[in-house]
């Protein structure tokens, strides 16, 4: 007798648990307001990333096309996997002194692991992360970027 009671108890409990699950899914079916997906390429315009989002490393330039990179190479040393390569050149300044300035700051996006060590260790805060996240290109060569813009100068007052 006990086993029969147990048998029916199992059935009612089982069916009850199934109904509880269906209650949840059914509720979501009838509440379209809870949809969480975004229509991604359509909402590009008003898609805001977090300000600290590590998209890619950039070198901010001001409106006079000046950057802060002195070409010291600390970022290159700190990068764990050789993403950054700083190529510097020597020029003679107006007052006749020799000075090493940056020629090319090469950044290989394809190798970058976004560990932020270059940005953190830069003594003159020349590097930053941008919020750009659409990195896809058809040619790997396009992932090797030169961060300083052509003709850019070292910002005044940065040593």
């Amino acid at each position: 007798m006990n086993s029969i009671i147990q048998y029916f108890k199992e059935i009612t409990q089982g069916v009850g648990s199934l109904l509880r699950g269906m209650q949840v899914t059914n509720r979501y079916f009838f509440s379209p307001g809870k949809i969480v997906t975004q229509k991604y390429p359509d909402n590009r315009k008003d898609l805001v990333m977090f300000e600290r989002f590590k998209g890619e490393v950039v070198m901010p330039h001001n409106e006079k096309n000046e950057h802060k990179c002195t070409g010291c190479g600390i970022c290159e040393i700190n990068c764990p996997n050789g993403t950054i390569e700083v190529i510097s050149k020597t020029i003679i300044t107006e007052d006749g002194k020799k000075k090493r300035i940056i020629d090319k700051h090469i950044y290989r996006l394809g190798m970058c692991t976004f560990c932020a060590l270059c940005v953190k260790t830069c003594p003159s805060n020349a590097l930053a992360f941008s919020q750009e996240f659409e990195h896809a290109v058809f040619n790997r060569a396009l992932l090797i970027k030169t961060l300083n813009k052509p003709g850019s100068q070292l910002m005044k007052g940065v040593e």
Partner: peptide, 14 residues
Amino acid sequence: WEYDAILTGNVIFR
């Protein structure tokens, strides 16, 4: 509680 309703308590899952 939804986690419990959908999986933990579900007789098939158990």
